[in-house]
Simulated scan of single mutants.
Amino acid sequence: MSQIAWLGPNDSFPNPLIHPDPDPSVPGLIAVSERIYPGQLSQAYQLGIFPWYSDNQPVLWWSPDPRMVLKPTEFKCSDSLKKSIRHFCQDMNSEIMVDQDFGAVIRACATSTRKDQDGTWITHEIMDAYTALHEQGNAHSIAIIEQGQMIGGLYCVSFGSMVFGESMFSRKPGASKIALAALNTWCLQNGVVMIDCQQETAHLHSLGATPISRGEFLEQLQISLNETKIETSWTFDKTILTHWL
């Protein structure tokens, strides 16, 4: 059994295709580092690896098997969600803000309480690293606004033609689902065939996400990375939601 790699600032990640589970007792854990070093997050995503850890831990880097993904063509827009979308679109005081306040969205995700996780994995270091990724054009935010207040949203990462969903939050029931519906429409319009959801949850399953093997995910990732980067600007308004009505 090989050991899980401890990465320094100049070390590369093990390839999960070659070293899928260095320690079978911790499936999916690929590597560990003391901190997130410059450039490390970009390298990780392009290998299908992501960080997930708590404040009292070193940085833990994961490539789980199976991998939860959401194909935009299979997004489940329930009748109740369609009703929420219709109300949102008809409200003159509602809007979608894309990439206009990434910091506010990721902070909201970090402080959001949820059933399946406590949110503490979005540490200050995580917020700084993803904000840097946003400034490089590879991380994006979608905020749902009502009456001038942010009631929900999400942030994601994009390389090539692959989108990686990161975290959502709601301050009003269903608000994060509206943001996800908007993201799915944008993906449909721009030829994105898969949104990485990382880990399996009942909530994601209810929205149409399904688990696939790590091998299948990494194969699709390589195809997406070899394709031309999505050139369309991450700029859209709430009219994108009419796709679901």
Results as ranks from 00 to 15, higher is better:
S2W: 14
Q3M: 10
Q3V: 10
G8T: 05
F13W: 04
P14M: 03
I18L: 12
V26I: 10
V26A: 09
L29V: 00
I30A: 01
I30V: 07
S33D: 05
E34H: 08
R35N: 10
Y37P: 01
P38T: 03
L41Q: 03
L41R: 01
S42L: 10
A44W: 00
A44F: 00
W52H: 07
Y53S: 07
S54A: 09
V59T: 13
L60W: 05
L60R: 05
D65N: 14
R67G: 04
M68G: 03
K71V: 06
K71D: 06
E74I: 04
E74V: 07
E74N: 11
S80W: 12
H87R: 15
D91Q: 07
D91P: 07
S94W: 06
E95G: 02
I96K: 05
D99C: 04
Q100D: 07
D101P: 04
F102G: 00
V105F: 01
C109K: 05
S112W: 09
R114A: 06
D116G: 01
D116T: 03
Q117E: 15
I122Q: 00
T123R: 08
E125P: 10
I126N: 00
D128Q: 15
L133M: 12
Q136A: 09
G137Y: 08
S141Q: 01
I144L: 06
I145N: 02
E146G: 03
Q149D: 12
M150C: 14
M150K: 12
G153W: 00
G153L: 02
S161G: 14
M162C: 15
V163Q: 05
G165M: 00
F169W: 04
R171V: 07
P173E: 02
P173D: 06
A179H: 01
A181W: 00
L183R: 01
N184T: 12
G191I: 05
E200A: 12
A202M: 13
H203A: 13
H205E: 15
I212R: 04
S213M: 09
R214P: 06
F217A: 03
Q222K: 14
Q222N: 15
N226L: 08
I230E: 08
S233M: 11
T239R: 12
I240A: 05
I240V: 13
L241G: 00
H243T: 10
W244S: 04
W244C: 02
